[in-house]
């Protein structure tokens, strides 16, 4: 069985648990929706202000909801010490890591799929003017977030203050990713859309994802094993 299929198995296991309880999905999506409502009261709602702030709103929602989802997804492995079982399973650790990252990425994508339409609906943000590139940018951003996030959420599994430390570790490391995501989205919704900038930041995100994917695969084992 190839590594990718094993990874898909691990991801499918996570998703099946999730689809039975829908705990993470519902709470994350509710939280992201709530954030949009908070934005609507916290920021001016005129068209110019929304156009300026919407990209940031979108990526902050992804970051916050994603962090909650990450923490919870790995908590599940901690409760019955199933992380050890996963690591002992006769598959490469790479498959375990990729499977985890894939299941997290799908959850965060679902959150983005909830909160983007809400931003459009409640705030009138013109996010759907170029849906194709927007989906690509969100996909690239979520991949990077899930990859780096899975590494550190896994290492923090046994740490008592993991809920506080996860954002302390992740946000400084992921600032380039979130800035790139915000800048791309901003270039997309400006009139006219600045495709030169969009292309630059999409390349940036692609390289970022590739570099950190390799780095995560390379370090995952030595970081997680005691």
């Amino acid at each position: 069985m190839s590594v990718l299929r094993q990874a898909a198995r691990v991801a499918w296991k996570d998703l099946r648990i999730e689809l039975r309880s829908r705990e993470i999905l519902y709470t994350m999506a509710f939280f992201a929706g709530l954030l949009v409502v908070v934005y609507a009261f916290a920021f001016p709602r005129d068209e110019r202000a929304v156009r300026g702030a919407a990209p940031g709103m979108l990526w902050v929602a992804i970051a916050f909801a994603g962090t909650i989802g990450l923490g919870r997804a790995f908590d599940r492995e901690r409760e019955n010490d199933t992380m050890r079982a996963l690591l002992l399973a006769p598959v490469p650790r790479l498959a375990v890591f990729l499977g985890k990252a894939i299941s997290i990425a799908l959850l965060v994508l679902a959150v983005a799929a909830v909160c983007t339409p809400l931003l459009v609906l409640f705030l009138g943000a013109p996010l759907f003017t170029h849906p194709g590139p927007l989906v690509l940018v969100i996909l690239l951003g979520v991949i990077g977030f899930s990859v780096v996030g899975s590494v550190f959420a896994a290492t923090l599994l046994k740490v008592r203050s993991r809920d506080v430390l996860l954002p302390v570790i992740l946000y400084p490391l992921l600032i380039p990713l979130f800035v790139a995501g915000t800048k791309t989205t901003m270039a997309l919704i400006s009139t006219p859309a600045d495709f030169h900038a969009v292309w630059y930041w999409i390349q940036f995100l692609g390289i970022y994802d590739a570099v950190f994917l390799v780095l995560s695969v390379w370090t995952f084992e030595s970081l997680v094993i005691e």
């Binding site: 780096v148 590494v151 550190f152 290492t155 923090l156 046994k158 740490v159 008592r160 203050s161 506080v164 430390l165 302390v168 570790i169 400084p172 490391l173 600032i175 380039p176 800035v179 790139a180 940036f204 390289i207 970022y208 570099v211 950190f212 780095l215 370090t219 030595s222 970081l223 005691e226």
Partner: peptide
């Protein structure tokens, strides 16, 4: 992380240092 992550702090912090170092060119480009 060093201060509050308990017994496995050294490993986690090492990961953060490595990821931080690799992130430098991205911050620079950003």
């Amino acid at each position: 992380v060093r201060r509050f992550a308990g017994p496995s702090a050294d490993r986690i912090a090492a990961g953060m240092a490595i990821f931080g170092m690799v992130g430098v060119p991205f911050i620079y480009k950003m």
